[in-house]
Structures are given as structure tokens and as C-alpha cells.
Simulated scan of single mutants.
Amino acid sequence: MVAALLCVSTDGHAELGGTMPSQADSALAPPQTLLNGALRLRTLTDAGNTTINEYATNTGQIIAYTWQGPTMPDLRALLGPYADSYRTGAAASAPDGNLHASRVVRPDVIVESGGPMRGYAGRAWLPAALPPGVTTGDFR
């Protein structure tokens, strides 16, 4: 399952821990401001028609992604430098019999993913990077 999660293509965004551009390029809408300026949100659609929400702090550091759509996004691209930590955690997780959902908790990154075919949803975030007053419930 991990290999499948890391193989689908995504375009037009940075990666966890990277920097969200403060100005939209010509192909993207400008980021929205959330929670009185604590977060910026940019919504993208990948090549598989999956909607990806990219969350950044007010300084531009990307701290989370959420996704929903008919295909899995390219988690290797989304997770960037945290992809190896995620893979290590996924490989060490004991199978719980649920083939449609997974939760990998590492000190540096948390990834939740699931859904039936053509109905994938999930989120990934950097727990230590959440600004004061921001919770994982704010990532929709």
C-alpha cells in the first residue's frame, strides 16, 4: 500500500516544510487567509483530478496538506523531506486489517489516508510546526 501511496503524479505545489509563494502565479488563485492570519490556504488540483489543500503559516512555511479525489496524490512530492520518515513508519506499522485507511504517526510528520477506490481522502502535517491556536481540526 505504501508504494501505491507514493507513486501517483501531482503538479504545481511545494512540499511540507517548504515555502508557499506569497503571490499566486498566473495559473493559481492567491492564497486565502484563515484563522485571523495564522494560516494561508492554497487549493490545487493535480493531474488525477484530486483536490489538494496546502496550508502554510503566516510566514509561508507549508505545515499541512489535505486531499480528496479519485486518485491518491503523489505523497513523495507532498511530503518532500518527510517521505522517508513516513515510509519508515508505514513499514513498521502493524497491519490492522483495514485496507482502506492508514495512520502513520512519527515525531516529525503525521499522515492519515483512506477511502475506497476513486474516493481517496487524507491529510499530512508537521505536528511541531503548528502555530499557537491552530489544531489539526483546522485542516479541512
Results as ranks from 00 to 15, higher is better:
61 Q>F: 12
63 I>Q: 01
45 T>L: 15
41 L>M: 08
69 G>A: 13
45 T>E: 14
43 T>E: 08
55 Y>W: 06
46 D>K: 05
64 A>T: 08
55 Y>T: 00
58 N>V: 01
66 T>H: 13
41 L>T: 01
41 L>I: 11
61 Q>G: 06
40 R>K: 12
40 R>T: 11
70 P>T: 05
65 Y>V: 00
62 I>Q: 04
42 R>N: 02
53 N>R: 08
64 A>M: 10
67 W>G: 11
69 G>F: 14
49 N>D: 15
47 A>Y: 10
53 N>E: 10
46 D>F: 03
64 A>F: 07
63 I>M: 09
46 D>H: 05
56 A>N: 04
44 L>Y: 05
68 Q>V: 15
60 G>Q: 13
53 N>H: 14
40 R>W: 02
44 L>R: 04
66 T>Y: 14
48 G>P: 01
50 T>W: 03
45 T>D: 13
64 A>Q: 04
54 E>Q: 12
51 T>Y: 02
43 T>P: 03
40 R>E: 01
58 N>I: 11
59 T>I: 07
46 D>Y: 00
43 T>F: 05
51 T>V: 10
51 T>F: 04
48 G>D: 04
42 R>A: 10
57 T>Q: 12
46 D>N: 07
70 P>L: 13
69 G>H: 14
58 N>E: 08
59 T>Q: 13
65 Y>I: 02
43 T>L: 05
41 L>H: 01
46 D>R: 03
50 T>A: 09
62 I>S: 00
44 L>V: 03
48 G>M: 08
61 Q>H: 08
49 N>S: 15
50 T>P: 07
61 Q>N: 07
51 T>G: 01
41 L>F: 08
51 T>K: 05
